[in-house]
Amino acid sequence: MINRRKFLVASAVSAVAIGSNKIFAATSFAQTSNKDDAIARYQKKVGDSFYLRAEGISSKVTLAELRDVKEDKQTQQFTLVFETNDSDISEGLCSATHLKSFDSEFIRVEQSNSEKGKLISTFCLLK
């Protein structure tokens, strides 16, 4: 049988567990939302080398510029332009590793239709 003391202890432990879960979730959400935005992160890396890896193909490329930068309260839109001498890079999903910081992420690249030796990757991100 449960007495008043056990009931109060169980209720207090439950309240602390529920409250701490919300506090930790809010803290981690605030940390991710306060990171510098993607535009600023890539703007710092213009002129740096990246290593692109896809199925069976890898190549060193240079981030030449950011184009079509549009930013509002809800979205960030921009296009990364990479320069390369390698014509074997296929269009599609690849892993891009920044050679100075070794940060890696998956991006979708495609050959530029208007400029030879350039790869582009277009982003439309929610904030």
Results as ranks from 00 to 15, higher is better:
residue 1 M to S: 15
residue 3 N to L: 05
residue 5 R to G: 06
residue 5 R to N: 13
residue 6 K to Q: 13
residue 8 L to W: 07
residue 9 V to D: 05
residue 12 A to D: 03
residue 13 V to R: 05
residue 13 V to M: 11
residue 13 V to E: 07
residue 13 V to S: 12
residue 14 S to P: 00
residue 15 A to T: 15
residue 15 A to K: 08
residue 16 V to M: 05
residue 18 I to W: 02
residue 18 I to D: 03
residue 20 S to R: 06
residue 20 S to E: 11
residue 21 N to F: 15
residue 21 N to M: 14
residue 22 K to I: 09
residue 22 K to L: 12
residue 23 I to E: 10
residue 23 I to Y: 13
residue 23 I to P: 09
residue 24 F to I: 11
residue 25 A to C: 06
residue 26 A to Q: 09
residue 26 A to M: 07
residue 26 A to Y: 10
residue 27 T to V: 14
residue 27 T to A: 15
residue 30 A to N: 13
residue 32 T to M: 14
residue 33 S to L: 08
residue 34 N to F: 05
residue 35 K to G: 04
residue 36 D to C: 10
residue 38 A to R: 06
residue 39 I to R: 02
residue 40 A to M: 10
residue 42 Y to H: 01
residue 44 K to E: 11
residue 44 K to Q: 07
residue 46 V to C: 06
residue 48 D to V: 00
residue 48 D to S: 05
residue 49 S to C: 05
residue 49 S to M: 08
residue 50 F to Q: 00
residue 51 Y to K: 06
residue 54 A to W: 01
residue 55 E to G: 06
residue 56 G to N: 07
residue 56 G to M: 02
residue 56 G to A: 03
residue 57 I to T: 14
residue 58 S to V: 01
residue 58 S to R: 05
residue 58 S to T: 07
residue 60 K to I: 10
residue 61 V to T: 00
residue 61 V to D: 02
residue 62 T to M: 12
residue 63 L to W: 03
residue 65 E to I: 08
residue 68 D to G: 15
residue 68 D to W: 12
residue 68 D to Q: 14
residue 69 V to T: 13
residue 69 V to F: 11
residue 73 K to H: 11
residue 75 T to S: 11
residue 76 Q to S: 10
residue 78 F to P: 05
residue 78 F to W: 04
residue 78 F to G: 04
residue 80 L to Y: 02
residue 82 F to I: 00
residue 83 E to Q: 06
residue 83 E to D: 09
residue 83 E to P: 01
residue 83 E to T: 08
residue 84 T to G: 04
residue 88 D to G: 06
residue 89 I to D: 05
residue 90 S to H: 11
residue 92 G to E: 01
residue 93 L to K: 08
residue 94 C to W: 06
residue 94 C to E: 07
residue 95 S to W: 03
residue 96 A to H: 02
residue 96 A to W: 01
residue 97 T to Q: 08
residue 97 T to R: 06
residue 98 H to Q: 10
residue 98 H to F: 04
residue 99 L to P: 03
residue 99 L to N: 03
residue 99 L to V: 00
residue 99 L to S: 01
residue 100 K to G: 02
residue 101 S to H: 05
residue 103 D to F: 03
residue 105 E to D: 12
residue 107 I to V: 12
residue 107 I to S: 08
residue 108 R to A: 12
residue 109 V to T: 08
residue 109 V to K: 02
residue 109 V to N: 02
residue 110 E to F: 13
residue 111 Q to F: 10
residue 111 Q to W: 13
residue 113 N to W: 12
residue 115 E to V: 15
residue 117 G to V: 09
residue 118 K to L: 13
residue 118 K to M: 11
residue 118 K to W: 08
residue 119 L to N: 07
residue 119 L to D: 07
residue 120 I to S: 03
residue 122 T to A: 13
residue 123 F to E: 02
residue 124 C to N: 13
